[in-house]
C-alpha cells in the first residue's frame, strides 16, 4: 500500500469516525444525564433521514432538509420522552431495554406504513458534490470533508453547551444529584425533555447527513445504533470527549482493517483464503477492539462511573 493511499484510508477512517460520533453524541448525552439506555436511538436517526428526504423531495433544498431532520427528530424525541421515556428513568436497565426495543418496532413499522416499503431518494446537493484535490494530490469528496467539519463543529458546540451555558450547568448538576437540583427550583422534567430532544435532534441530523450518501430505508437505524453503542462504550458512557475519541478509533480501526487485513494474510496464505479470512476478521475487528478496551479499562477510556 502506497503512502498516499494509506493517508487517504486514514482520512476515510476519520470521516467514518466523525459520522459515528454524530450519532453517538446524542446517545451518550442522554445516557450521561438520565442514565437511560435508549435502543430506539437508531429510529430517531431514521426519522431524521426520512424527514430530510421528504422535505428535499418537496423543496429541493438540502439546507431546508437538514433543518427538517433536526426539527422532526427533536419533536419525535420530545414526544417519545413525554409519553414513554419519562416513566423509565426510575426503572432498571432491563425495563429500559424492553421498552425501547418496543419503540424500535413501533417507529420502524410506523415509518414503513407512512412512507412505504421502498427506499427514498436523498442526495448530496450540487454545491457539495464531487471531489476536491487535497495537498499531496489526494482527490477527496467535498461532501465527506463537510461531514468531518460538521462533526467537529458539533463536538465543539456540545463541549461549550455543557461547560459554559446555564443549560449545561443544570445538565451537569442533574447528572450528579437530581434531588438537589430539583430542590433548587429547576424543573427536572422539562430539563430531561430538552436533553432528550437535543439527543434526538443530533441523531436526526446525522441521519440526514449520512442518509445522503447511504440509503434512506426502514431498518437503516439499527446497525448504526449498535455501532453508536460500541463507540460510547469504548469512549466511556456519558463522556462527549470519550464518544469523539471512541468514534474516531472505531472508524480508523474498521477502515484500516478492511483495507489491510486481507493483504496482511496474503503474506502467508494463498490469495482466496487470505481474502476470505482477512475479510472475516475485518468484520469482527471493532468488536474485538471494544472487548479489548473493556478488558483493560472496564468503564471505557473516559468513563467515570460504572453504571
Amino acid at each position: 500500500m502506497s503512502f498516499s493511499l494509506f493517508v487517504e484510508q486514514l482520512l476515510n477512517g476519520l470521516q467514518l469516525g466523525v459520522t459515528l460520533f454524530l450519532t453517538a453524541s446524542g446517545l451518550t448525552l442522554v445516557f450521561g444525564v438520565m442514565g437511560l439506555i435508549n435502543l430506539a436511538h437508531g429510529s430517531l436517526f431514521m426519522i431524521g433521514a426520512y424527514a430530510a428526504a421528504a422535505v428535499a423531495g418537496a423543496t429541493g433544498s438540502f439546507l431546508l432538509a437538514s433543518a427538517a431532520s433536526l426539527a422532526a427528530a427533536a419533536a419525535a424525541g420530545a414526544l417519545i420522552e413525554m409519553v414513554v421515556i419519562r416513566r423509565l428513568y426510575s426503572r432498571d436497565h432491563l425495563d429500559q431495554v424492553l421498552a425501547t426495543f418496543a419503540l424500535i418496532l413501533i417507529l420502524s413499522e410506523g415509518t414503513r406504513w407512512i412512507f412505504g416499503s421502498f427506499p427514498l431518494y436523498l442526495s448530496i446537493p450540487d454545491w457539495l458534490a464531487g471531489p476536491v484535490t487535497l495537498p499531496g494530490g489526494i482527490r477527496y469528496p467535498l461532501y465527506r470533508l463537510t461531514i468531518i467539519l460538521v462533526g467537529l463543529v458539533i463536538a465543539a458546540g456540545l463541549f461549550l453547551l455543557i461547560a459554559r451555558t446555564r443549560l449545561g450547568i443544570r445538565i451537569r448538576a442533574g447528572e450528579s444529584d437530581r434531588e438537589i437540583v430539583a430542590a433548587l427550583g429547576v424543573n427536572i422534567a422539562a430539563l430531561y425533555t430538552i436533553v432528550f430532544a437535543i439527543g434526538a435532534a443530533l441523531a436526526g441530523l446525522s441521519g440526514a447527513l449520512v442518509g445522503a450518501i447511504q440509503s434512506v430505508q426502514v431498518g437503516m437505524g439499527e446497525p448504526v445504533m449498535i455501532l453508536a453503542f460500541v463507540v460510547i462504550v469504548i469512549g466511556g458512557i456519558g463522556s462527549i470527549r470519550g464518544a469523539l475519541i471512541g468514534a474516531i478509533l472505531v472508524g480508523v480501526t474498521d477502515t484500516l482493517g478492511r483495507a489491510m487485513l486481507p493483504d496482511l494474510f496474503r503474506l502467508f496464505m494463498d490469495n482466496s483464503a487470505a481474502t476470505s479470512v482477512g475479510s472475516a476478521l475485518a468484520s469482527m475487528l471493532i468488536y474485538v477492539l471494544m472487548a479489548a478496551v473493556l478488558i483493560v479499562r472496564p468503564t471505557g477510556l473516559y468513563g467515570a462511573r460504572g453504571a
Binding site: H93, I226, V233, I237, A280, Y287, A291, L294, P298, A307
Partner: peptide, 22 residues
Amino acid sequence: LRTSGVYFIMITLAFGQMLFYF
C-alpha cells in the same frame, strides 16, 4: 465480568456480534 452495568450489557453484545460475523 470485569465490567458491570451497561458495560457488561455491551461487551456481551460485542462477543455475540463477533460470533455472528464469524
